[in-house]
């Protein structure tokens, strides 16, 4: 196991999967990410992260839901595992803790 560290883009993708809940597949994730963050990631980048997240055990996937505009191809739908949920939570906690540790003066001193 590669450890539980989360990259920034990985974290965003995990959150997007959470947002989309039951309908998280490659293209939908890409579009939601664009809507939420204004970024336009390559579709391959999205899939790359999905594969890695699945390897790390943060998401799991199953096939389902063929539609016409997809040329009859099935979607691979991703959902968060409990490990995944723990990982984003821990990530948020880590951030919050660190936010709390930054002295007030940094924000108000205006020296930098």
């Amino acid at each position: 196991m590669k450890g539980t560290h989360l990259g920034e883009f990985e974290e965003l993708v995990l959150l997007t999967i959470g947002i989309l809940n039951d309908d998280a597949f490659g293209l939908a994730i890409k579009e939601e990410l664009t809507k939420q963050t204004g970024r336009t990631p390559m579709i391959s980048a999205v899939h790359k992260v999905l594969v890695r997240l699945e390897d790390k055990g943060f998401v799991k996937s199953h096939m389902g839901g063929a539609t016409k505009e997809r040329g009859g191809r099935q979607k691979r739908l991703y959902i968060l595992t409990s490990d995944g949920k723990t990982a984003i939570n821990r990530s948020r906690e880590l951030r919050n803790k660190m936010w709390g540790s930054v002295p007030q003066v940094v924000w108000e001193g205006g020296k930098g």
Partner: peptide
């Protein structure tokens, strides 16, 4: 991987 990615690709292409 191919099935799902292909689907995405085709949808995007459309």
């Amino acid at each position: 991987l191919s099935e799902a990615v292909e689907g995405d690709l085709l949808a995007l292409y459309e």
